[in-house]
């Protein structure tokens, strides 16, 4: 994780779990003593965005940047100019949580000058339990579409296959198989497996990719 590039862009299909991955990844970096900022660039979706947990993240040492309109439910595609600060300030580890699909990736366009080869990672979050991303061909279709709009290059795949609190080891392994097939086809490495904390002991030990333990920040206790 510490070896990842300073700027990490998190993209993926709508509802693949980008925000939950981004929040957990950023919090983990902060726990490791890094100076971390997270930008929520989601201008597609109005519910379940990482900015809803800004307070919790700030308490854990993550600086959160979203809209300059400080109301979570405002339907204005506005992004704070402050996003430029961690792009320019090398002392930050920067996680950019992008909105879903190619539509959401469009918000990256204005920062394209900062995405120089070798200076950023772009992670594609994959959930094999989403109906739209269950085959290699469909995953590739999304990867290409989103990458084209983002004008940056995907450098890693995240196996984020889950059914929320009902996730089983089988779900994760099914996603792992799909992610490895995508890796074979594209040469883009499977970098992370995000897994609910209590499932980690049940996983096989030799899985490819680094395991990121996930705490569900965005789900209230009464939700599945």
């Amino acid at each position: 994780m510490l070896k990842d590039k300073r700027i990490r862009i998190v993209i993926g299909h709508y509802g693949s779990g980008k925000s939950e991955f981004s929040v957990n990844y950023a919090v983990k970096l902060a726990e490791m003593g890094r100076k971390v900022a997270l930008a929520d660039l989601d201008i597609v979706n109005m519910y379940f965005r990482s900015r809803e947990k800004a307070k919790e993240m700030e308490e854990l040492g993550v600086k959160v940047i979203a809209s300059h309109i400080n109301t979570p439910a405002v339907e204005v595609p506005s992004i704070a100019a402050e996003v430029y600060a961690p792009l320019q300030d090398n002392s930050y580890d920067f996680v950019i949580d992008v909105g879903g699909d190619q539509v959401g990736a469009r918000a990256l366009g204005r920062y394209v000058d900062y995405f120089k080869d070798g200076e950023y990672d772009m992670f594609f979050v994959l959930n094999a339990n989403r109906p739209e991303t269950q085959s290699v061909d469909k995953v590739l279709e999304y990867m290409i579409k989103i990458q084209d709009v983002s004008r940056a290059r995907i450098s890693g795949i995240v196996n984020n296959t889950h059914l929320l609190k009902a996730t089983s080891v089988e779900d994760i392994l099914r996603g792992q198989k799909l992610a490895l097939e995508v890796q074979d086809k594209t040469g883009i490495p499977l970098r992370y497996i995000s897994v609910l904390e209590d499932l980690i002991p049940d996983l096989p030990k030799d899985l490819e990719g680094e395991i990121l333990p996930i705490k569900l920040f965005l789900r209230d206790e009464w939700m599945l």
Partner: peptide, 8 residues
Amino acid sequence: KVLMKGNE
């Protein structure tokens, strides 16, 4: 089972 958003 698949994971879907309510509206979808």
